[in-house]
Structure formats: structure tokens, C-alpha cells
Simulated assay, not measured.
Amino acid sequence: MGTGSTLARRALGRELKRLREAKAMNQSAAGRVIGVSPQTIGRMEDGLPTKVSDLYVNALSDAYAATNDQRKMLLELALEVRTTQKSGGGWWRAYADSGIRLGIDHYMGLEESARRLATWKVTIVPGLLQTAEYRRAIAWTDSPGLPPEQVERRIEVAMRRQERLADAAFAVDVILWESVLRDQIGGPGVMAEQLRRIAFIGQRPNVSVRIVPFNASGHLGSVVGSFVLLEFPQLAATGLIEPPVVFVEEYAGDLYLEREAEVMRYRDAFAEISRVAVDPDTSRTLVLEIAKEYGQ
């Protein structure tokens, strides 16, 4: 599995920022070195798409007094970014006309690059487990005025995204509150099919699906709210491992948490929620029982 350009951009930006700060230079001064705005330096350091030529990297390496090994690492990361970008970037960019929400490009790049995804959901089935009909019902609820062709394009994105589950090296650990199973999105027929889909995917060797039932004792999950914890493999060029990221999806905007203390709080929360979740086999039985309750 390739890690794509997202992780290489993040690693490059992280190293450039570390070297700049060690030299006690601000972003404006760094921008003057290569003739760009401080905002462009900020985008580069944040791992966002921007030009990362060898000319820029060498000039900044000179200004930051980088060692030969540091310069070599930066150039290797920049090459990895450009090599991946030549393939056209992430496949999901071809669906820009579907009206998918802003910011999805960044998340999709992280998910595509991740080696492990752990998620706790209190509402809505995670996208990686959704059926087409369930996804369609969400789209019509979220954007009732959306043209049908854009709705179908969104569904194509969701189904294409699920191809990642076939990668045995991609570990997925899902914990769902029972409310996710009982919220009748799309009606009983849609929910029955969706729950059977959850039970089926949960049998994959790289996927774990567990449920926190309503009768579980008081747990942290109802306080924390839904989140995704993403962990990443080594970068091919340098062997660096990007720090994990916590993704919190909100109605008015998304949140990405990367500070070690923040990530640890969510990692600890996931462990605490895991403590009250029933095991995968019991969870599968519960999911199928609720599917039968929908009368389908």
C-alpha cells in the first residue's frame, strides 16, 4: 500500500517548521528566502498542497543551517510528494462535482494512508460500513435540494472508499453505541439491510465491530462523542512515522487533533469505551437480532 502524498507533505512541513524555529526565524523571513508569502510557508509547514521544489528546499535548508543528513531527508520527502502527485492525487478528487463537503480531501488522504483506524460512533454508521441505500438516505436528509446525479456521485465515493477494507494491512476497529443501530435512517428496510452489512463486514479478519448496548453501565463514550483515531505506517523514503491524528466531524466544520496530549486523551477514551463494549461475536448477534426487529 502506498502512503500517498498526504503523509509526505505533513512530514516535510513538520521538519521545515522544526528547523525554522530552531533558527529563530519567523514565517515572513522564511518566505523572503524563497520569494513567497508567509501564508505559503504556513501552508507548507501545515502539510497542505503547495509547491515543494528542490530549489525551495535547498534554499530553506541553507537559511536554516540544515545538516547534510537533514537536507537529504527534506529532499527525499519533497521527491515523494511530487512523485505521488504526478499520478493525479487521490482518486476522490475526480468526484469534486458531487458537492461533497469542504475539507473531505484532507480526511480522505489521511484515511487512505492510515494503517489503523479506530472509531467510536454515537450516531450514524461509519462511512466505511454504509450501504448505498443508507448513504443515499443520509444525502437526501442532509441536502434535500441536491440534484439526483450529485447524490449518486456521492454514493460512488462512499462505495469506492470501502475498497480499502480489502487491504489486509489496514486494521479497522469500530465501536458503535446501540443508538446507531436503532436510528431508522431511510426506514426499516434500509436499516435491516444496513445492519446485515455491518454483521458481514465485521467478519473480515482485519475488521472488528463491537457494540456498546444501552444497558451498559455509565461510560465515557456518551461524554466524549464520536471520533476517529488514525495511525500511520512508515514513510517509504525516510522511514519516518507520522504521529496519529484524531478526527472529529462536526456539522459546521471538522476538527483535527494532533498534539500528543490530545491524542492520548482520545486513545485512553477509546480504551475505556472498549471496556464496556461487548465482544465481536456477541455484537454480531445483537446486530442481527435488531435487523430482524425491522421485520425484513
Rank of each mutant, 00 (worst) to 15 (best):
P126T: 06
W91A: 00
G13D: 04
M108W: 01
R14T: 06
E152K: 09
E258W: 07
A199T: 01
L195N: 02
R259S: 11
P126Q: 04
S283C: 09
F200N: 10
R20Q: 08
S53T: 15
D142K: 03
P148R: 14
G90V: 00
L55C: 03
E193G: 13
K121Y: 10
V52G: 00
T285C: 08
E272A: 15
P244D: 12
R32L: 12
L75P: 01
A66H: 03
S113N: 10
P243C: 09
E260T: 13
G90P: 01
E80P: 02
L102Y: 12
L255T: 15
N68M: 14
L110M: 11
V125H: 09
G4S: 06
I198C: 03
Q70P: 07
I100P: 03
L146T: 07
E193T: 15
P147A: 14
R204E: 09
G88H: 07
M25K: 08
F232H: 05
R275A: 14
Y266W: 12
L165V: 06
A96L: 10
T238V: 12
G187D: 10
G253K: 11
Q27T: 12
G218Y: 09
A24K: 13
V245N: 08
A291L: 06
A269L: 13
Q39V: 14
A137C: 08
R14F: 02
A59E: 14
K17Y: 07
A236G: 12
T6K: 11
A171T: 11
A269M: 13
R82M: 05
L16E: 00
N215A: 13
P205R: 09
A261Y: 03
I198Q: 05
A22H: 05
P233H: 10
A269Q: 10
Y294L: 02
R82Y: 05
D254F: 02
V212H: 10
G186F: 02
R197A: 07
R267D: 10
G221C: 03
R284M: 12
L79D: 15
V33E: 13
F200I: 05
T84D: 14
R196G: 13
V81L: 03
A63E: 07
T238Q: 12
V36S: 11
L16H: 00
G202R: 00
Q85D: 15
Q234F: 13
P147I: 04
L220I: 14
I124V: 15
K86C: 04
L19T: 02
W91Y: 05
M1K: 13
V33Y: 12
V223P: 04
L288M: 11
E178P: 01
T141Y: 04
W177I: 00
G186D: 04
L288W: 03
D46S: 15
Q296K: 10
A269Y: 09
V228N: 13
T3M: 10
R210E: 07
E80F: 03
G218I: 10
G225N: 11
Q27L: 10
L77Q: 05
